[in-house]
Design a protein around this nucleic acid. Sequence first.
DNA 1: TCAAGTTGTCTAGTATCATAGACAACTTGA
DNA 2: TCAAGTTGTCTATGATACTAGACAACTTGA
Lengths: 241, 241
Amino acid sequence: MSMQESSGVALWRQVADGIERGIADGRFAAGEKLPGEMEIAETYRVNRHTVRRALAALAERGLVRAERGSGTYVEAQRLAYPLRSRTRFSEIVGAGGHEPRGQLIEAGEDTANREIARELGLKIGAPLIRIEAVRLADRTPICVSTTWLSAERFPDAGNVFANVHSMTKLLGHYGVKDYHRASTRITAAIADATDAARLDLPLGRPVLVVDATDVDMLDQPLVTKRSRFAAERVEFLVENG
Amino acid sequence: MSMQESSGVALWRQVADGIERGIADGRFAAGEKLPGEMEIAETYRVNRHTVRRALAALAERGLVRAERGSGTYVEAQRLAYPLRSRTRFSEIVGAGGHEPRGQLIEAGEDTANREIARELGLKIGAPLIRIEAVRLADRTPICVSTTWLSAERFPDAGNVFANVHSMTKLLGHYGVKDYHRASTRITAAIADATDAARLDLPLGRPVLVVDATDVDMLDQPLVTKRSRFAAERVEFLVENG
DNA sequence: TCAAGTTGTCTAGTATCATAGACAACTTGA
DNA sequence: TCAAGTTGTCTATGATACTAGACAACTTGA
């Protein structure tokens, strides 16, 4: 027999992703025993060795645990988190009874290209602070964001964010009491290797790509950002009056 | 040299994903020439043949086009789709310089489940008209929609739509002069076999799933629908005041 | 105790992935 | 016209992925 998807994704990986999805959506509950390796092999029409490799990958990530002679058991428990627009990430997550977290990946300097300059009302080439961060609800990554701020208006913003772990608090540090969303663009893509790693998501899962700009109460642009959300963990509600 | 990520995703696929992302986020604009195969190979630290395979995969999906002796060029560009209170498919597509088309797949009767009843302000079990249609810009499918209308208020709506090929015209036929969007919910999923066939999309590509309800000028619900957009062909623009 | 069912570990063969180099066919600009 | 740069196609080689079969080690329940 020979499968030949030629999708560029290894069979064992497809099986692993399938099982992980089963865990994520509750088909396999935490602590429960998975079907036997033979049975999994049959459902995916794949050799048992391929299933073993998939299970090994999941075991290495701590999602399952194999017990010789007995079976393979689910270690993880599934988490799901809604997200609404027009509010603060921290407030949205907090309202859902979860603890919002922000984790800095990298902060650095940058210069404005045409698009960012237009969004922020700056000149092309203007100095920027670029902040890349993961945002989590409890311990589940929700999105990765790249945020750009004017380096003149928000000097040292990278270090500030590293301390406060929140964009609202960062802006408050510079005297911005309130702000709101000026524009939002949404599309979708497939998680690439970088997304997958940062969102702790299997490769090939959909991500929602959101470009947004926030302005202060005088409609002066403050920050513009591009975020990539794990689509299976979020649903956007658009409220047009 | 030997890469050995062991991520279960083939190198050529990682390269293809990287290039696609570059196209999606505008680093490579539509019509523009990509870097040469050798240059791409160097940036990804990969053999030229691996790059060629990645480009072949993108070419097969119509995202790029190779010209011998000259270079490889970006084919795609996304349709800008503003999500305003006034959202008409035909107007949006027309504004982009494309010809809007609607193609009926199937029309039939249905009864309201809890969600649809709530959206349309009907009782559970109320008779409905269900219209499934593909919407295209020129000859490119943009989305498939399932639309529900009250069968009492819009009798024979299926046949009307089959003639006019437009939801705006259909509503006009029943005396609705104007309407607007009451609610929009967006998430993303992976194209299944049905989506793939109707959207002329390869299996496994991302789709944007939009649930929306339109109301008349007195805020009375008219239609509720679920649409599945080919994510790689559209970009939603959200304008919150 | 024992049989059935489970995971763990070998060996082996075939197909695909990725690299490497060479050259042909073609386009572009000087 | 020509040189430089591009994509297209061929051969070849090693590493990895997948399949296939067999058997060991262990758990469970009758």
